[in-house]
Simulated scan of single mutants.
Amino acid sequence: MAKVILRNLNKTFVDQQSKKEVNAVKDLDLEIHDGEFMVLVGPSGCGKTTTMRMVAGLEEVTSGEILIGERVVNDVPPRDRNIAMVFQNYALYPHMSVYDNMAFGLRLRMLPPIWEQLANPGKTKEIKASIDAKIQAAAKKLDITDYLDRKPKALSGGQRQRVALGRAIVREPEVFLMDEPLSNLDAKLRVQTRFELINLHRELKVTTIYVTHDQVEAMTMGQRIAVMNNGLLQQCDTPQNIYRHPANMFVAGFIGMPPMNFVKGATVQMEGARPVIHCGGFSVTLSAERTNVLAAYVGKEVVFGVRPEHLNDKSLVSGTPENVIRAQVEVIEQMGATSNLYISLGGHALVSVVDASTIAKENAPLDIVIDAEHCHVFDKDTEKAIF
């Protein structure tokens, strides 16, 4: 195992049409702890895969440093970095059996040239036995022992992905690199394989960098998440901290499904000892604890944010809640245990997630409770979170 450190990492490409430089990764500083499962997440083109490819040695670093363990690996070829990579498309040799696919890299690395094998058959037999032991152990972990004699075409998508994982595991690397390994699987198999990957990491305790555009994968798998956009690291923290305390509007809108509701053009006012966010059609009264952090924004425009799950049907809330606002329900999506309500609140189109027992009806009014304790306010210019 080894920690991975990225110091002021930059990657610049030259656009072939415009001949202009494109910054794919900009001034990235990130430390992945020894044995940690780190997820790089963001939309297409955010720089996450480019970052992984630089760690792997498949992309040249424009500037900055990459350390694996205590060693700077910028100029170290990929084969000497002691890493293993799992690809989105499995990358299995179709003419080889599962066993041979898993053994191929080990044979290249461990077996001597053929003339040395012939000259020292005892040593060769010993190496082959070691390779076999590694493959059998990995196959048992991944429950693919019964498939070792099959060709990839005789396997399902999930089984092929396990073979690709097995090929990486037998290398016993210091770092696993996984580039969207679940994206080719169907929804049910994706959930199952996600669970298997989490258990596998707990067992192996190998430092893992996992790239995905799926925020659900990021939230459920990562011990920490690094959110990227336009080549820049937006925030790196635990899943719950990113969800509860997003650093800016991009993170707030990207993490969470359905995404956070934003109301632009809101203003901050003080009414007595408590701050109030006026959203042009409805207002939200906050606790007095928010007074100090909002003091500099009184009378100014801000962006108000609230997650769909913090807009609730009043009939489902006990007691006498504050911040009850009449909304118009336009569309209801039945999700089973919950319902997504598309509502018009003070002229703003918002989404609410409520229990399926809601009394809401389409094209009918509904009293909505805004949970002020879980609301967010952002600076309208910088888009950074005020709280």
Rank of each mutant, 00 (worst) to 15 (best):
Arg7Val: 07
Leu9Thr: 04
Leu9Phe: 05
Leu9Arg: 03
Thr12Phe: 12
Gln16Gly: 07
Asp27Met: 04
Leu30Met: 09
Leu30Phe: 13
Val39Phe: 08
Gly42Ile: 05
Ser44Met: 12
Ala56Ile: 07
Leu58Ala: 04
Ser63Asp: 12
Gly64Glu: 11
Gly64Met: 11
Glu65Gly: 00
Ile66Pro: 09
Arg71Ser: 06
Val73Gln: 08
Ala84Phe: 03
Met85Arg: 01
Val86Phe: 06
Phe87Ala: 03
Tyr90Val: 00
Tyr93Leu: 06
Gly105Ile: 08
Leu108Pro: 00
Met110Gly: 04
Pro113Ala: 07
Ile114Glu: 13
Ile114Trp: 13
Asn120Tyr: 12
Lys123Trp: 01
Lys134Gln: 15
Asp143Lys: 15
Tyr147Phe: 14
Pro152Met: 06
Pro152Arg: 09
Pro152Leu: 10
Arg160Phe: 03
Gln161Phe: 10
Val163Cys: 05
Arg167Leu: 13
Ala187Leu: 14
Phe195Glu: 02
Phe195Cys: 10
Glu196Leu: 11
His201Asp: 11
Arg202Ser: 00
Lys205Pro: 08
Ile225His: 03
Gly231Arg: 08
Gln235Thr: 11
Cys236Phe: 03
Thr238Ile: 10
Tyr243Met: 08
Phe254Leu: 09
Gly256Ser: 03
Gly256Cys: 06
Lys264Val: 04
Gly265Ser: 05
Thr267Gly: 03
Gly272Ser: 06
Ala273Gly: 15
Ser283Gly: 01
Thr291Tyr: 12
Thr291Phe: 11
Thr291Ile: 05
Asn292Leu: 12
Val293Arg: 12
Lys300Ser: 06
Val306Tyr: 08
Arg307Ser: 06
Arg307Pro: 13
Asn312Trp: 00
Asp313Thr: 07
Arg326Thr: 14
Val329Gln: 03
Gln334Leu: 11
Asn340Phe: 11
Asn340Lys: 08
Ile343Glu: 08
Leu345Trp: 10
Ala349Pro: 00
Val354Thr: 12
Ile359Asn: 13
Ala360His: 04
Ile368Trp: 10
Asp371Tyr: 10
Asp379Leu: 01
